[in-house]
Amino acid sequence: MKMKVGTLVFGAAIGLTAAAANATTLEDVVARGELICGVSTGVAGFAAPDDQGNWSGVDIDVCRAVAAAVLGDASKVKYVPTTSKERFTALQSGEVDMLSRVTTWTFSRDVGLGFEFVGVNYYDGQGFMVPKALGVTSALQLDGATVCVQTGTTTELNLADYFRANNMEYSAVNVETADESRENYLSGACDVYTTDSSALAAARSTFDDPSAHQILPEIISKEPLGPLVRHGDAQWGDIVRWSFNAMVVAEEKGVTQGNVDDMKGSNDPEIQRLLGTDGDMGKQLGLSADWAYQVISQVGNYGESFERHIGVNTPIGLERGLNQLWTKGGILYSPPMR
């Protein structure tokens, strides 16, 4: 049952009695004509509003892919910015249909909190950045250092574990947002900046003199970041999972936003299944036959999304690294489309 209160801001508390009831998230989304996607309040390259007020980033592209698959229009997404504190409540209470906001896939979140992580759209790991002038070459030399860390994330737990395991002391400067961490680090309020290494690289690229800072070789945690949905609606989980996987498979098979129309005539059976010219995968998901075609033609494949928002030619300037396809030395791997 799904009831909607308060869309009219004031008087509609009464609208409660006249509510449409749908059994599944898919039906809700279709009836609404819009996907509600929980995103972060601003992480450069992953989700941030641009100068025109449109959200963009790799996390945003996952939302857009799902909207394209379900509704046939990638722009029919309502982005609900959530803080790291309220993100899980927002998903649990049904305020959002899915979360795509740099959330680490962990046991307790997957099992304890009752969510379903459907994939990994960015393989990350927590690292340290220090000014070169400090003369530090390893994280093991950081005893007594002051560390900038963002609160409300797994980062601070990893940090505590790492320093404890290595018998080192530290003091932390806890702040709410990445931007504040960056300001603190640059002004020297802390010696070390720790967060996911992708974010470290992103932050470094925006410094006036990036070459004066280095990222230490130690990666102290695994941070698989991915989209997640509520437990209990397996169909919806499948849709989000395969909307994302379609982007990965498309990159494997060389299907891009530009050539997707030509590829429809391809002889490769997997491409045919992907683009809906063969088989009934769309129907099995409860979607139209060309769902993946819509994803690729409107959002692009994974590599395109990556290069568009965080790749080497963007201000963020990240290498593909672990997020390269498994065939090219990375660990990005989608189950086969068959």
């Binding site: 601070e156 737990l157 505590a160 574990d161 320093f163 530290y170 003091s171 932390a172 400067v173 806890n174």
Partner: peptide
């Protein structure tokens, strides 16, 4: 239960 995080600052 153990807090698992450090309070500093």
């Amino acid at each position: 239960e153990p807090a698992r995080y450090d309070v500093t600052g």
